[in-house]
């Protein structure tokens, strides 16, 4: 049995005017223990909404429309947030949020925030000193000046230290799986490399084993993930191993993403990155055909009217009837 399973998950937002916006539709994948899955896609394509769904935290205006998420066979949909918080979050599934600075309470020290996590999940069993030692041991693994970081307020830390503290706090209770939502997009390249190195360190030391890594940078995913799935307008358009997706993309959208890359290599200066014309579709309306069809270079007549299903092309899943 897979550790983590998503079956036909669809999520929608209910707007103030009563209409629905289908932010995520028909997402399915399985994740074995020890695997790293990367999710890539442009901004506004439903990556962050999918994260809320994967943790079972559908807080209004977000509602599940169909499908389910299973963690070790345990379904997550239609459970109360209270129940999810007690049984799933931090123990089985944990999240590394997008902005580290916004995730930390500015009026409390890092050690207090970490203690809060323990107290809220395990109750006030242990003494403060014991808890502090436990936190200290875990933060030692993160490769920072532990005593100083634990006794500082978030504003006193650098961006890299803040991000590492957030990762430390999220993984404090040894979750099986971690969902990292753009953990490095606010950091510079050097710090990004350090943070990724630290995440690999934690994987090596078996703090957690499985990860979903969300980012909009495909080159980064090629180094981090085993498998990559690319999202467009709430749907998965292509899923395969990272080598397949990066070096041999099949879906027109993935192809376009790869040709828009910039690099500092010789000869790359004259090469213009290819932009995709047009905007992603508005998800409030029902879309029958392929969602990428209006912007697709290879679109055929019936692309806009025929519903595209996921099919297997060259060992990977592609949502395009004409991909080869």
């Amino acid at each position: 049995m897979a550790l983590f399973e998503v079956k036909n998950l669809s999520l929608h937002y209910l707007t103030r005017f009563g209409s629905k916006v289908h932010a995520v539709s028909d997402v399915s994948f399985e994740l074995e223990e020890g695997e790293i899955l990367g999710i890539a896609g442009e901004s506004g394509c439903g990556k962050t909404t999918l994260v809320s769904g994967l943790m079972g935290l559908c807080i209004p205006p977000l509602y599940p429309s169909q499908g389910d998420v299973f963690v070790e066979g345990d379904p997550l949909m239609n459970r109360t947030p209270q129940d999810i918080r007690e049984n799933i979050l931090s123990r089985k599934v944990s999240m590394i949020p997008q902005g580290a600075f916004n995730a930390l309470n500015p009026t409390r020290r890092i050690k207090d925030l970490a203690m809060d996590v323990i107290v809220s999940h395990e109750g006030k069993k242990a003494k403060k000193k014991e808890m502090y030692e436990r936190i200290f041991k875990r933060f030692e693994l993160l490769g920072m000046d532990t005593a100083r970081v634990l006794n500082s307020y978030p504003v006193q830390l650098t961006a890299g230290e803040r991000q590492r503290s957030v990762i430390g706090i999220s993984t404090l209770l040894n979750p099986k799986m971690v969902i990292a939502d753009e953990p490095t997009s606010a950091l510079d390249v050097t710090t990004q490399k350090q943070v990724i190195g630290m995440i690999f360190d934690l994987l090596e030391k078996k703090v957690f084993s499985t990860m979903i890594f969300i980012t909009h940078e495909l080159p980064l995913l090629r180094h981090v993930a085993d498998r990559i799935c690319v999202m467009y307008a709430g749907e998965i358009v292509e899923m395969g191993t990272s080598e397949q997706l990066v070096f041999d993309p099949r879906h027109p959208y993935t192809k376009a993403l790869m040709s828009a890359m910039l690099s500092a290599e010789e000869g790359a200066r004259g090469k213009k990155p290819e932009a995709i014309e047009g905007a992603p579709p508005f998800l409030g309306n029902e879309i029958i055909g392929c969602r990428f069809a209006p912007r697709c270079k290879y679109a055929k007549e019936d692309c806009k009217t025929k519903k595209m299903e996921i099919r297997i092309v060259g060992d990977r899943q592609v949502r395009c009837d004409y991909a080869e």
Binding site: Q192, I196, F200, L203, E217, L218, E265
Partner: peptide, 15 residues
């Protein structure tokens, strides 16, 4: 910079 053609971080190792 993570570049698709160059090795960057070796998995299961230090940065």
């Amino acid at each position: 910079i993570p570049d698709i053609h160059k090795p960057w971080i070796v998995r299961n190792g230090h940065a």
